[in-house]
Each structure stands twice: as structure tokens, then as C-alpha cells.
């Protein structure tokens, strides 16, 4: 990024500098950090920022992916290539294994979601590998419970978040002290908006998985959301598969990631679309719509 006026950073440069600062604090303050990598655009931006923070050294933490087994193929391929390119260790925590071991129970119904089942898989991965800090790409502008998050967010030994009793966090002073068995979730992108992320992707020329761009796909309309055709979704009465040009605004599990009808097939067009959007990017997330405080409730239990 270049453009700037005398001793004045653009707001995107300020955000970048802040995120890099946070990542370095994590490397310095914790013994065994990890970067939670979802395969979405925010995690991809996180990897780029981590490269910048530690260049010319490699990332001082692994990428940890909680694989629901219901991911888009493109996401998995992209994940493997990216880890390989940046020379980072990739750790995969599998929801299927949790189910097989009887520690998690599959939902039933027309679109059984494994979204919630990521919680035990994640918490077990944290415990098994003794990660004491997990970097996540969540942003405060995404959702009302996330709007309340600190950069350094404490989790007790059960992985729980206590939103009513968060530590004060002043200036750029981050307190990562904790007792054994507890951990922190760290959100370097806290102050970024969806638009900031896309502008950064454009400026930095960051490659993204193809599902972010318009492509033809079969889908079903369900409660105002478009769900891509896959083996995990069964049609309800009155529903039918349709076909059209769609793309994802966020990427998660196939059963809960809504797509939008779009012909935007490059970053500039997506930026135009984001600017004109009347729905939030998580507006298509079935997992958030389950109740008024669905995100808060999951976060309290240890969700991302």
C-alpha cells in the first residue's frame, strides 16, 4: 500500500498497522498461539497480515481449520494450497471425528447444520494441542454480539465467553494474562468493515476461492436465503432446485451459507455490490437466524 499524505496514514493503512501490531503481541505474549482458518475472505486476509507481521520469517503459528465435512470443495483446495504457499503448518480439527467418537451429535431435519458442532471440535483441538491463543477473523461490524468483543477476549477453562464481565482494554495495551487451561480469542480485524476487507483484497491483489465470484449453480430458496445444492440438503414440500448466477458473501458450511444472486465476477464489481447492499453479509446465514441472540449464545459456549 503506498498512497499517503505527510505523516498521515490512510484509514486502511491504520487498520493494517493495528492488525499487524495485534498479531505480533500474540506471538510475544503467548506460548502456543494458532490462527483459526475458515477458508473465508477474512481468514485469507488474516494470513496476508500475518505474513506481513513476521516477514521475512514464516508465521510463528499454525493454521487450524475446523472442518465440518460439509465444506465447499473449492474451500478445501484453496486452504491446502494457501498453507503450502506460505509455508504454514496446517492442523485440521474434524467435526466428523467428534461425531464418530460420540462427543457430538448430528442434527436432523431438512438442513441439518454442523455449525454448532464446530464448538466441541474446536474446543477439543484447543485442549489437545494446548493452544493458549486463537486468532480469529471475526469483525465487529458483522453482528451485534461481535460488536461487543475485545481484541483480546478471555475464555475460561471451558472455552466460555462472559460478555457481562470483559476485561477493560485501554489504548493499545493488551493484557493476555490468564490461568492454566484458560485461553484467549484474539480478533485483529475487529475494526475492519466488510468494505475495508474488499478494498484491501483489491489493493493487495489477494487471491480468493472461486465461490466468492459469480458462477452458475443449482440452489433452493429457503426462508429468504439461497442454499446451494449439495447432498446434505433435502428439498421440503413445495421447494425445487433452481439454477442461476450466484456467489457467496461469507463462506461457511454449505448447509448454512446463503448465496446471493449476482453477476459480479471480479473484485471491482463486488465492491460496487457491497456498497449497494441492503442486507448485512451475514443476512444469508441461517445459523444466525435461529434466535435473537444466536451468535451470542454460541459465542458464550466457545464458538468463533
Amino acid at each position: 500500500m503506498s498512497e499517503q499524505k505527510g505523516y498521515q496514514l490512510t484509514h486502511l493503512q491504520q487498520l493494517e498497522a493495528e492488525s499487524i501490531f495485534i498479531m505480533r503481541e500474540v506471538a510475544a505474549q503467548f506460548g502456543k498461539p494458532a490462527l483459526l482458518f475458515s477458508g473465508g475472505k477474512d481468514s485469507i486476509v488474516m494470513v496476508r497480515l500475518a505474513q506481513k507481521a513476521f516477514w521475512p520469517a514464516k508465521l510463528p503459528f499454525p493454521l487450524v481449520h475446523v472442518d465440518t465435512g460439509h465444506n465447499f470443495d473449492e474451500t478445501i483446495q484453496f486452504r491446502d494450497d494457501l498453507a503450502n504457499d506460505v509455508g504454514a503448518e496446517l492442523v485440521v480439527a474434524s467435526v466428523q471425528e467428534e461425531i464418530d467418537a460420540g462427543r457430538a451429535k448430528e442434527e436432523t431435519g431438512p438442513n441439518p447444520s454442523r455449525n454448532r458442532l464446530q464448538i466441541p471440535a474446536l474446543l477439543n483441538a484447543i485442549e489437545k494441542n494446548q493452544y493458549d491463543a486463537c486468532l480469529g477473523g471475526a469483525r465487529r461490524d458483522e453482528e451485534k454480539a461481535r460488536a461487543k468483543e475485545r481484541f483480546f477476549s478471555h475464555r475460561n477453562s471451558f472455552g466460555e465467553w462472559d460478555p457481562k464481565n470483559q476485561r477493560p482494554e485501554l489504548w493499545n495495551l493488551f493484557n493476555g494474562k490468564m490461568d492454566f487451561g484458560e485461553h484467549f480469542r484474539i480478533f485483529p480485524l475487529s475494526n475492519w468493515t466488510e468494505m475495508d476487507v474488499w478494498q484491501y483484497i483489491k489493493l493487495e491483489n489477494i487471491p480468493l476461492p472461486s465461490i466468492y465470484f459469480s458462477h452458475e449453480r443449482e440452489f433452493v430458496r429457503r426462508s429468504g436465503v439461497l442454499l446451494g445444492k449439495c447432498e446434505h440438503i433435502t428439498l421440503l414440500e413445495g421447494e425445487a432446485w433452481e439454477s442461476g448466477n450466484v456467489r457467496c458473501r461469507t463462506v461457511g458450511d454449505m448447509t448454512c451459507t446463503g448465496m446471493v444472486e449476482s453477476v459480479a465476477n471480479n473484485v471491482d464489481d463486488i465492491i460496487e455490490e457491497v456498497a449497494a447492499a441492503r442486507q448485512t453479509e451475514r443476512g444469508g446465514r441461517v445459523d444466525d437466524k435461529r434466535s435473537e441472540t444466536a451468535m451470542e449464545d454460541r459465542k458464550k459456549e466457545g464458538y468463533f
Binding site: D141, K144, A147, P163
Partner: peptide, 24 residues
Amino acid sequence: LLTDGLRSEREQGITIDVAYRYFA
């Protein structure tokens, strides 16, 4: 309610922790 997003905030009708919002 646009900023008071936590369950306890909504129950009590007060703000408990900072909410960050972004606009242009």
C-alpha cells in the same frame, strides 16, 4: 436495540459493554 445487542442488555434495557459501530 441497534447497539444493545447482548441478551442481558436487552433484558435490563441498559448498555453493559461498549458496542462498536462503523459507518460512513
